[in-house]
Write a protein that binds this DNA or RNA. Structure first.
Lengths: 144, 144
DNA sequence: TATATTTCGGATAAAATTGTCTTAAATAGG
DNA sequence: CCTATTTAAGACAATTTTATCCGAAATATA
């Protein structure tokens, strides 16, 4: 459904948010360890998220990544996904037609529309904050 | 959502089914022209579909591809998708965790479950036959 | 100021996906 | 039987995605 880069990006965002909520800044190494992802590749993705103002980065000793606490319940899954994969996955044609639309639909247009709308709604209403809830109690996981 | 190979595969299947319903066998060139896809690459995908018994192929002059008429309303989108991309897209974890399940879920498990179940249901109930309906009347399209 | 730590940016490499080409095998029809 | 046509199969190439590495820039701290 999503690229690996996007999957890592979402997991990293959730981890950073969770840590920011208890006032902790985390660095690349901690992040890739926490979400079980390749460190250097994850670093690239963190740069993308930073450029898109979804997370903040600071250099130097005690540097690392944070998510602004007031933004944690503003940022939606769709913000992360579109920053990394674009919005094709939840807006594009299921059969890959560039010009597929209501007027000139692909044969599966209506079928996919239902699914895509469900996905779009989910991504656009789910906040990073609510995804952090189960983590500290060990109800949910970011690894394996 | 799906790979290009899979998109081509679905479009090709629909076209072959449509033509088989009026007793016509179609070859690689006609198929790639009808669905606007690279011919040689599409040929590879047709081989996969043939090996998975989703379509039939015959060599020689007047050879080409058909879908058995009694199978056209038996074959589901999920058959095509799983033959080419596997079932990860509608069964796997949205965040890419290999071992994500109800007992040890990712933070977005329940959110994705709704979407994935909708996608799974759609793919497993939609037949190739019903996807051919709008084509001959020009209500739906397989190109562009 | 000097040093150690951390992110940033670019180059590079490996792997997967997408795409092409060529030859072999099958087969219909003359 | 011969030829033309078509799919099958394998090698090869291009592109994209995934992943690594290294030097530069920033910065906290001693």
């Amino acid at each position: 459904m999503f690229s690996k880069a996007c999957e890592y990006g979402i997991r990293a965002s959730i981890y950073i948010a969770e840590q920011s909520m208890v006032g902790k800044r985390v660095n690349q190494k901690e992040i890739s360890k926490a979400i079980d992802s390749p460190e250097a590749f994850t670093a690239k993705i963190l740069q993308q998220l930073t450029k898109n103002n979804l997370i903040n980065s600071e250099k130097g000793p005690s540097g690392g990544f944070t998510m602004e606490t007031h933004a944690i319940d503003k940022i939606k899954l769709s913000n992360i996904v579109s920053a990394i994969d674009g919005d094709e996955v939840y807006k594009g044609c299921g059969l890959g037609l560039k010009k597929c639309n209501e007027k000139k639909p692909c044969p599966a247009h209506d079928k996919f529309k239902i699914v895509r709308d469900e996905l779009k709604k989910m991504l656009e209403t789910t906040t990073i904050k609510e995804l952090t809830f189960g983590l500290k109690d060990g109800f949910t996981f970011l690894k394996r």
